[in-house]
Amino acid sequence: MAVMTYREALNLALREEMRRDPRVFVMGEEVGLYEGAYKVTQGLLKEFGPRRVVDTPIAESGFTGIGIGAAMLGLRPVVEMMTFNFALLALDQIVNSAAKMYYMSGGQFNVPIVIRGPGGPAAQLAAQHSQSMETYFYHVPGLKVVRPTTPMDAKGLLKSAIRDPNPVIFIEAETLYPVKGEVPEDPDFVIPLGRAVVRREGTDVTVIAYMGMMYRAIEVADELAKEGISVELVDPRTLRPMDVETIIGSVRKTHRVVVVEAGAGFAGMGSEISAFVTEHAFDDLDAPVERVTGANAPMPYARNLEKLKTPTKDKIAAAIRRVCNANGS
């Protein structure tokens, strides 16, 4: 184990996979000479040269389309979106080509592409740079969607995403890039896609969250422990396909669920979890599944409004107390 930042963990994952597999290459705006808007691709141009670290024009649809074509012909592109909001400009390529090509070609072409970059709440980056963009990808059949919370997850999941034979949407976070944590240095260390992790065991309530909201939920769980509420924290890590088994296993133990997400919430992670928990574990539930979501508004620029847009610790704690008091058993 080494201690490194989330940013360094991503960089290491890219470096190791590029060394392991000559088909892997990186492409995007400012990824080469400038070493990435957030320095995730630092040093890669120097080590691997301009044929494998490709600076593109500001044209998301164009370079995503090139990446999809390269993947169909056997390469392993890792395309960077400078921020994930900009991926909307490539949405047609992602949904209509990357996600469907394997199906439409009757299995003749798979598209092993990773589209990565930062997304979600940040620090006053406003509505076109800090929306929770996973909502536009996790209902697309044919895509996998990953949101890594820790540096270890960032490395292990990015490596799995690069090795996956199908398209993976991999959304990081500006606010997590400087976060430090332990990361295995073993180049064979990977974390499989589609597996959740129980970050903390508890007995009274299952709280499901990822990334910034998971860090917030950890603080809330610490505070509620003083009141005698034992919170189990589950991090889905991969949003599509969701690890139904781990979540249901936790619900069968705690009988109460709170889902926390930064996005606007309509037909979001909380909705899907609420729906499948009801389907699979209806008789185990002692309280309705609670959703704590971002406000149904674009991300504001003003700092005071930005704080109100995402779920606060008070709102998370209130939801946990509500389900713990709603004793249906």
Binding site: R240, M242, G268, M269, G270, S271, E272, S274, A275, R291
Partner: peptide
């Protein structure tokens, strides 16, 4: 099905 309007209605 996944993350569809039905999930929102069910929730």
């Amino acid at each position: 099905r996944s993350f569809g309007p039905g999930a929102e209605v069910a929730a």
